[in-house]
Nucleic acid binder design. Structure first.
Lengths: 111, 111
DNA sequence: CGGATATTTGCCACTTTAGCCACGTTTGCA
DNA sequence: TGCAAACGTGGCTAAAGTGGCAAATATCCG
């Protein structure tokens, strides 16, 4: 593994890591559905301290997943990428496959 | 956010978190390309201790992303999902977009 | 100007993760 | 039987991630 290739995987990992948290997934889903939300709305949705949500948003922004725009005292966030839905559908595939296997194992136990 | 929805996002996060590490991305890419690899081959590729690679593989397996099969003294791992490539292409989209924006900013500085 | 609201940042405690070494287990083979 | 190779696991330490509270900042409005 040469230096350049390693850097590629590290860059990928940074983006993926930015998504690897329930609160940030909630935020991404909400933005995908509503297009734009202020920090206060997302705070209510996520249910943690606003400072925590602000940090989550900072991570998403730093990864290039969202963009922000200040209007008055409020800051509005929106998605910067359009492929997130296919991304999540792949994750759902994994989860569904896991569930199917689990059901299979349970069936074997019963038999 | 009700309990059931939260559980959904937590499940998603677990799967995504399993991918959120350079070494694990290297492994996934290698398995996507070669179909099957033993721990020793992956260890050489990743370049860390075999015990570390074994733990990475354990995480991927627990997330349902890979399957393992023991043959003799060796354990072979392979992908359990087919959508990973579109997954990564989305990540690449993000990275390319980030790079484009960066180039734009640099151009503005020069102007 | 002074207060109120929205957001971010500094700081701290706590938990999780990553990596290595040493050791245990399984399997193949002489 | 006994050795060697391939893996996995326990234990340890260093680093990173998370979340809350308090304080700083920015903006609007009276």
């Amino acid at each position: 593994m040469n230096r350049k290739q390693l850097a590629k995987y590290e860059a990928r990992a940074r983006v993926i890591k930015a998504m690897a948290h329930p609160a940030r997934l909630i935020i991404l889903d909400e933005l995908a559905e509503h297009g734009e939300r202020c920090v206060c709305e997302l705070t209510e949705l996520v249910g943690t301290d606003m400072s925590t949500v602000s940090r989550h948003l900072s991570q998403l922004k730093h990864a290039g997943l969202v963009a922000d725009e200040k209007r008055g005292t409020m800051v509005f966030y929106r998605l910067r990428v359009k492929c997130l839905m296919s991304f999540f559908s792949c994750v759902e595939d994994v989860l569904e496959q896991n569930a199917a296997e689990h059901r299979e194992l349970v069936a074997l136990e019963i038999a």
